[in-house]
Amino acid sequence: VRQEELAAARAALHDLMTGKRVATVQKDGRRVEFTATSVSDLKKYIAELEVQTGM
């Protein structure tokens, strides 16, 4: 499950970095929206997932 969450989070980051205004991911069973202003929060979430998956 964590691998899927990590892939979704990375895709969301890619979307935001390429101009999409809002990206949505499932985080702990709930839907979370990230915007360009919350990229740093999304990067932290990705880092947490990488630690949890041993990457």
Rank of each mutant, 00 (worst) to 15 (best):
K20N: 08
A36K: 11
D41Y: 05
Q26M: 15
K44W: 07
R10F: 04
L13F: 05
D15P: 00
D28N: 09
G19C: 04
E50R: 04
L13A: 01
G54W: 02
S38Q: 14
V32C: 08
V25D: 03
T24H: 12
R21Y: 05
R10V: 09
K20A: 15
V39L: 15
Y45L: 13
H14W: 06
M17T: 07
A47W: 10
D15R: 05
L13D: 00
V1W: 08
L6H: 02
R31A: 15
G54V: 05
T53V: 15
L49D: 00
T53M: 15
A7C: 10
Q52R: 08
T37D: 15
T18G: 09
G19K: 03
T37M: 10
I46F: 01
A11C: 09
H14I: 10
V25K: 02
K43D: 04
R30G: 08
S40Q: 14
I46E: 01
T37L: 11
Q26H: 11
G54P: 04
A11G: 07
E4I: 11
E48H: 08
R30E: 12
T24K: 05
Y45D: 01
V25Q: 02
E4D: 12
K27C: 09
K20V: 11
R21D: 14
T18N: 14
K27R: 13
T35N: 11
K43L: 14
A36C: 13
M17W: 02
A12T: 02
M17V: 09
T24D: 06
Q3I: 14
R2D: 10
V32T: 07
K27I: 15
T37A: 15
A47Q: 12
T18L: 10
L6G: 01
V1M: 13
A23E: 03
M17K: 06
M17G: 04
K27N: 05
G54A: 06
R21H: 13
S40H: 13
M55W: 02
K20Y: 03
L6Q: 01
V1H: 14
S40V: 10
D15K: 07
S40T: 10
L49Y: 01
L13Y: 06
R31T: 15
T35L: 07
A36S: 12
E4R: 12
A23M: 01
K27P: 03
R21N: 12
A12Y: 01
K20G: 10
G29S: 04
E48Q: 11
V25H: 02
E33H: 06
E33D: 12
A8N: 10
R2G: 12
T53R: 07
T35E: 08
L13Q: 01
L16C: 02
K27G: 04
A36M: 13
A23V: 15
E50N: 04
V39G: 02
L6P: 00
V25W: 00
K44L: 09
Q3C: 13
M17Q: 11
A23N: 02
G29T: 03
A23Y: 00
Y45T: 03
